[in-house]
Structures are given as C-alpha cells and as structure tokens.
C-alpha cells in the first residue's frame, strides 16, 4: 500500500555500492591478486606443468559448481552432489564389463535419476531443498558403498584416455569442463529454460502468474545438477583408474556451494553467474595451492575458506537490504 507506492529509484549509499561491487567482482579481483602474489613469490609458479596440475584439479569442482549454480539460481540447494559423484563412480565399475561407453552412460543416467528424485521431492512434494537433498546425500553415498564396498582398481584404455590424455596440450578433463561451462552459460543466457529458471528463483509467484511451468523447471534443474555431478564423478574415476565410493566427492557440496556463492550468485536466487562460479572454483583451488606451496598447512585453507564464504554471504546480504 503506502509503502509499496514508494518504489522510486533509490540512490545507492557508498557502503552499499562497495558491497555490491564486491559481490559482483570481488572474486575476479581476488583471483587476480592471488595470481599476482604467486607470480611474485612462488617459485616455479609460472611453469606449464604447474598450470596443468591446477587446472586438472579444479575441473571436477567447476563441473559440479555449474550445476549447483543453476540450483541456487532457483533459490534451492543441492547437497547430494558429492554422493552422486560416488554413485556414478560405482556405476562405472559395475558396468565396465560392457565397455566404457555403456559404463559412462549408466553413470550419467544414475546421476540424472538421483537429480530427478530430488527435484520431484522439491517441486511436487514441496519438501525444502536442503532436506530433500540431505536425504539423498546420506542415502546415495550408502548406495554407492553397497554397490562397490571397497576401493576397486581397474585398467581400461578408454577411461585412461578420458582421464589422462591431452589434446593440443590441454588435458581432456579441462577441455570437458570448459565445454560444459560454455554449454551452461549458453543455457542460462540464450534458452527459454535459462530465463525461466532465473525467474523462478527471482519471484516464484510472478513466474507462476506468467504461466511458467515452475515444477517442471525445478525438476529439470535438479536433473542437470545430478547429471553434472555424475560427469565429474566419471572424470575423477577415469583419472584415478579406480573407484572409491567411500571418499570420492566427500564434502564436494561444500566446495561447490562456496564457489557459487563466492562467484556472486546470491543464495536467495534469481541470478546465475556462470563465469563467476568458475572463478569461485579457481579461487578455492588457487588458495589451496598457494598455501601448500608456501608450506602452510591444509588447516589454513579450510579456515580461510570459512572466512571467505562468510564474507561473500555478508556482502550479498548488505546488498539486499
């Protein structure tokens, strides 16, 4: 009523503007700063081998984070991604007997199916995303362990190629991550689905009134998240030439959420920053590498990561108000 009438454009205060800038570009600035720091102070940082290692390590995080960004864009969250990686890894081992393509397809189907389950719980049963995917986190990790009870090694030429080959000097894993990033960016920017998922996260009531198939969109988003997590699981398995459902993808959901939030996608939905998300993943990876290279213990990484995620959410919050 009276209050809503006052929707005149309000000038942003200095502090608000700073926070807004930080939310949007903070991640780029941080990555840049870390890179410069390393160039200056870390021996061998500029060597090609080092870059390769960094990129290979960050690829699975990037892939999982892409799906997470889509889910968070709808004001949801997907805690099941780490477990889906484990399940897809288990599926690879189970179906490797039929050849690598069959095994990979089985893994991807399993990931999509888990996503469909989570999406259905969220969209049709009306369960909060955090609870629905928590149930999947617990159950699917268990399922993966039941299917493949212990670390299982294998040798499969096709999977070795997938995990370790390079094309034009770039590891295949990295190329796949880059292609998927481009695909997701295209999805968000250029397709109906992308526009609609952002609208669902931005204002669900408005989306519904505008005739958007809100429930189908939600299910699709979780299916994509499951699918991408499965891809990451397959790649990790191929690299290791082994499946270890007990530890593969453990705590991946936390890294992915951090990457997405740090990358400027607000937890309140309505916006998806694909490039920001990739930068967020890079930031975590670089941070870890920097600390290790300077002989600082792993414990620092986690504590710094905690501070970063708090700061990112705080910046987003300052902006909303």
């Amino acid at each position: 009523m009276a209050e809503t009438a006052g929707t005149l454009p309000k000038p942003l205060g200095g502090r608000t503007r700073t926070l807004a800038w930080l939310q949007r570009y903070g991640v780029y600035a941080s990555v840049l700063a870390l890179l410069l720091f390393n160039v200056a102070f870390t021996p061998h940082f500029l060597e090609v081998a080092n870059f390769r290692t960094q990129l290979i390590q960050v690829a699975p995080i990037v892939i999982v984070s892409l799906g997470m960004a889509l889910v968070i864009g709808t004001e949801g969250i997907d805690l099941s991604v780490g477990s889906v990686m484990a399940l897809s890894s288990a599926m690879v081992v189970l179906y490797l007997g039929y050849g690598a393509p069959v095994a990979i397809v089985a893994a991807l189907v399993a990931g999509a199916a888990v996503g469909a389950g989570g999406g259905a719980l969220v969209a049709y049963a009306g369960v909060q995303p955090i609870v629905a995917t928590l149930a999947l986190l617990v159950g699917i990790r268990g399922l993966a362990n039941v299917l493949v009870p212990q670390l299982t090694e294998f040798r499969n030429p096709a999977l070795i190629t997938l995990g370790s080959r390079s094309v034009l000097g770039l590891p295949l894993v990295v190329i796949i991550a880059a292609v998927l990033t481009a695909v997701v960016a295209f999805l968000v920017k250029r397709t109906i689905f992308g526009r609609q998922l952002v609208a669902v996260g931005g204002n669900r009531a408005a989306a519904k009134l505008s005739g958007l198939p809100v429930r189908r969109i939600l299910v699709a988003v979780y299916v994509l998240s499951g699918l991408l997590a499965a891809v990451a699981g397959v790649l990790a398995t191929a690299r290791l030439q082994a499946s270890d459902p007990t530890s593969l993808g453990l705590l991946m959901e936390l890294s992915a959420i951090t990457a997405v939030v740090v990358g400027g996608t607000p937890l309140t939905g309505g916006r998806v920053r694909v490039l920001g998300t990739v930068m967020g993943a890079l930031l975590i990876q670089l941070l870890q590498a920097t600390l290790i290279k300077h002989n600082l213990p792993q414990s620092w990484t986690q504590m710094v990561q905690a501070v970063i995620i708090l700061a990112a959410v705080y910046a987003a919050r300052g902006r909303k108000k």
Binding site: R195, V198, A199, G201, N203, A206, L209, S210, L212, G270
Partner: peptide, 16 residues
C-alpha cells in the same frame, strides 16, 4: 506477484 526484481526490463517484458 509482478516484477522479477533480479531481471532486466527486457527480460521482464519477455518473460511470459
């Protein structure tokens, strides 16, 4: 129930 505040004028118009 109307505007999607996070989106642009253009995307809001085209939404439905």
């Amino acid at each position: 129930e109307g505007i999607v505040p996070t989106m642009s004028v253009r995307d809001n118009i085209a939404l439905a």
